[in-house]
């Protein structure tokens, strides 16, 4: 189910002194099954953009098409859209409320009006997908560790079986181990289910290892859009807006400047290793 964003504009508090242009003239096509990294500095409009994709914010002008249908049509079922485009907010563990983990994950599918059996089946599947063991199912979600809470919250969205999964800074506030776990989990999800994933982040390093495409936002508009190596080739421009390419990019650039004959396309450590070995002729 591709998403098409067409000339999207969003202005908050229009007509007051607090007027903020959050998004200006965004045009994007998000095809099925792509793993996208959405990157930008704080206030660049990335959170605003993703909330438009499942209809939580209404655009000031322009529109979003999901599966060929305009989501701002009068009779468009937004509730259904939200089950198809799952959105995991920043610090999603703050939205947990139920008495135990399992019922919290059931909340989403229950809202879809499914039968009790289907609801529980989906919740079980979702919890397994995020790697939660059965022993945690009937614990209070408030007793879990930070990383576990976050996984439960992600399961809460996964249980609605969305076709597109959007995650807003899923690694914020986690330690390196928790971060790798969550990112690995997302990669695994994408490989297993083939769903479209949009990963919002401000860390290039996080994203470079996983995604097929990177969209860089700055000041409410799309600055760069392409495969990681093309985007990182613009590392100087990225620096100007307070972002940085992965460390590997810098190493390769520096080697080339020093006269060592390597390509500068590598974005991950593995690619860099292969490239250096190639240059050494081994």
């Amino acid at each position: 189910m591709p998403i098409i964003v067409d000339h999207l504009n969003c202005i908050y508090e229009a007509g007051t002194a607090m007027e903020v242009v959050a998004l200006s003239d965004i045009n994007l096509v998000i095809p099925d099954g792509q793993f996208i990294g959405l990157i930008g500095h704080t206030g660049s409009g990335k959170s605003s953009l993703i909330q438009h994709l499942n209809g939580l914010i209404k655009a000031s002008s322009g529109t979003v098409y999901f599966n060929g249908e305009d989501i701002y049509d009068e009779d468009y079922d937004l509730k259904k859209l939200r089950s198809k485009v799952g959105l995991v907010f920043q610090y999603p563990e703050h939205q947990l409320f139920e008495v135990d983990v399992f019922s919290d994950v059931c909340y989403g599918p229950k809202n879809l009006g499914l039968s009790k059996k289907d609801v529980e089946l989906r919740a079980y599947k979702a919890l397994k997908m995020v790697g939660m063991d059965d022993e945690y199912f009937y614990q209070s979600p408030f007793d879990l560790s930070g990383g576990q809470k976050r996984r439960v919250a992600i399961a809460g969205v996964l249980a609605m079986e969305p076709e597109v999964l959007i995650l807003d800074e899923p690694t914020a506030g986690l330690d390196p181990k928790g971060r790798d776990e969550i990112l690995g989990l997302i990669k695994k999800l994408q490989a297993e289910t083939g769903m479209t994933i949009i990963l919002v982040s401000h860390s290039m390093e996080d994203v470079a290892n996983y995604v097929d495409r990177i969209i860089v936002m700055n000041g409410g508009s799309v600055m760069l859009d392409g495969v990681p190596k093309d985007v990182f080739a613009h590392y100087k421009e990225l620096e100007e807006v307070g972002l940085a390419a992965p460390a590997v990019t810098y190493i390769m650039q520096q080697m080339k400047e020093q006269g060592f004959d390597v390509g500068t396309d590598a974005t991950t450590i593995a690619e860099a290793r292969d490239e250096i070995l190639r240059a050494l002729g081994r």
């Binding site: 909330q51 499942n54 939580l56 509730k79 939200r82 089950s83 799952g86 959105l87 995991v88 907010f89 999603p92 703050h94 939205q95 909340y107 989403g108 809202n111 879809l112 809460g156 969205v157 609605m160």
Partner: peptide, 13 residues
Amino acid sequence: DKIMKAQMARGAD
């Protein structure tokens, strides 16, 4: 506002 949106993303009405 944030929690409302988060729960709406989970189909709350």
